[in-house]
Amino acid sequence: MIKVLIADDEELVRTGLRAILEAADDIEVIAEARNGSEAVTEAARYRPHVVLMDVRMPVMDGVTALREINRSPQPPKVVMLTTFDRDEYVYSALRARAAGFLLKDTAPRDLIAAVRAVAQGNAMLSPTVTKRMLDAFARSETPDSAAARKRLAGLTERERQVSRAVARGLSNTEIARELGMTETTVKAHVSRSLAKLGLANRVQIALVVRDAGGNESP
């Protein structure tokens, strides 16, 4: 059973998320929090597998709560709830190693699938979200190209090919088709690349590739 903590300052949102998640027979919502401070406390008390965390909350915002939760010895996977088009905190959450991001209007089926994926240790980031976040970073940050190329040099050529495809916002299915491999192999390359680079999700891979010079070889 996947144990979930929902943290959002709007009761209607919490109620809706609970109803959606508890419709799945393998997910249980074990606690709710109205702000980031409560989320930190409840996460320590109930030890959920996954936390759905609103970015914008009173008392303590979601990013600060994420950092606090990640200081615990065995932290849960934290998925940030956001609107993306106006949440400047999203990029701080990415740097703070959020396990994924969900739009607040995510379809119920996709929400359940995302919780399951994150609970299994997979980062939850859609290609559309990847592209939007990369665009925002491109407008706001100056890349350290030399450092990024040095990091990518530690990957195998196949891992770099997959990483460059990730940076273009392709899904695992699209990468598999383009590079002539199975989706399982693509997932394995992505996982190894994350481990070697010390990263938490696909967007972070895409950022390193972008900083190294886009789709060119490091």
Rank of each mutant, 00 (worst) to 15 (best):
L152E: 04
P108E: 09
A117R: 15
D135I: 00
Y46P: 00
L52H: 07
V166A: 03
N122M: 11
A98Q: 06
T130Q: 08
V51D: 03
A24G: 02
I27V: 15
R160L: 04
R139M: 14
F101I: 13
R45V: 12
E38S: 11
T41H: 12
Y89A: 14
G154K: 13
A167R: 02
G154Q: 09
A44D: 08
V79P: 04
A65K: 04
G62K: 06
E42Y: 11
R45I: 13
V51A: 05
Q120T: 12
V51C: 08
A24R: 04
T106V: 15
T64P: 00
S163I: 03
K131E: 03
E88V: 09
A31Y: 04
N35V: 10
H49Q: 14
P127I: 09
Y89H: 15
T142Q: 03
R139C: 03
G121R: 11
V162Y: 03
D61V: 09
L152H: 01
K104H: 10
T128C: 06
L94W: 04
T106G: 02
K131I: 13
D144H: 14
G100S: 10
F137Y: 13
R34Y: 07
S126L: 12
A138N: 06
E68G: 06
L103K: 04
L111A: 07
R67C: 07
D144N: 14
D85R: 14
A31H: 05
A99L: 07
E159T: 05
L155F: 08
Y46I: 00
D25M: 02
L94P: 05
R86Q: 15
A96I: 04
N35P: 04
V129M: 15
E141N: 01
A165T: 05
D110W: 05
A65V: 08
E42Q: 13
N35G: 09
Y91W: 06
R149G: 14
T156W: 02
E159Q: 15
A147G: 07
T82W: 04
S126Q: 11
A114N: 12
D61C: 05
R97E: 15
A33R: 05
L102H: 07
P127M: 11
R158D: 12
M133V: 15
A43R: 01
M57W: 09
V90S: 13
A147N: 05
T142Y: 00
L81A: 05
S92R: 12
R71C: 05
D85A: 14
R67Q: 14
A113Y: 08
L155R: 03
E88M: 09
V51H: 03
A117S: 15
G36T: 07
A98T: 13
V59R: 13
S140P: 00
F84C: 10
P108S: 12
S145P: 01
A31P: 08
R149D: 03
V59Q: 12
V78Y: 11
R67V: 14
E38G: 03
L102R: 01
E88G: 04
F84E: 13
V79C: 04
A43P: 03
A136R: 15
T130P: 00
V51Q: 01
